[in-house]
Amino acid sequence: MAGIADLGVGIGWRSEIDLTVERLPGVDFVEVVAENLHIGHLPESVTLLLERGIPVLPHAVSLSLGGADPVDLNRVEHLGKVAEAVGAPMVSDHVCFVRAGGLDSGHLMPVPRTKDALDVLVANVKLAQENLPVPLALENVAALLEWPDGELSEGQFLAELVERTGCWLLVDVANLYANARNIGTDPERFLDEIPLERLAYVHVAGGEHHGDVYHDTHAHAVLPEVLGVLDELCSRVRPPGVLLERDDNYPSDTEIASELAAIRAVVDKHGPAQWLN
């Protein structure tokens, strides 16, 4: 694919597991939460990884590009500065909104899949892109509810977003599994509808079932069902990168290494391994 280099298998860098990330075998790239970094004072661990040549990708959670409020350009500027500080080839955020009317939701809220909402999202994404030094990738979120009167499927919504903005896609297969489980999204249809040639990389994360509901906790092991969705994606395209997200209840180094190996095995199953080990 043009513009996005092969990344390999990576893990979300978190300060709690910085030493683990540094010594884990098979970490080809990492992702940092942009809001947690301060320009001019990068964590020692992130600097060390950069010195080793490990790509560091900033991932934002607060741009609220799906919101009706004006985009906060200070947040966009910070994301861009983090990208420059770590020499990132791209940055990312979510297809969601996190604030409205002066209130912060504390969650990644799904955007209504209407033409009007898409227009707002497209305008915000274009504004963000104009103020970012590198390409922007946008991630599908896990939703516990669906807004009424949706006019597009999630795949159609993302496809049109890509077509109108030229953004890249960050597909979270755990979120896709969550939506399949919780609101009836069809993962295969989703993968059929999105432009896979614009796939930047993939997120994989753990969660747990509570009755009929799946919680995308990022604090539990990756379920085989989620790896199944990754398998389905990899049967259609070789993703430039796949990244494990873990945000709490960090397991032992051995368990994390096993999850990374399981991810790599799924990807390699569909073709010769071309990534650095």
């Binding site: 300060s15 709690e16 597991i17 910085d18 030493l19 683990t20 020692e44 960090y250 032992s252």
Partner: peptide
């Protein structure tokens, strides 16, 4: 492997 220490000593 029963506890983890981070760079900032946590």
């Amino acid at each position: 492997g029963l506890v983890r220490v981070s760079r900032d000593g946590l």
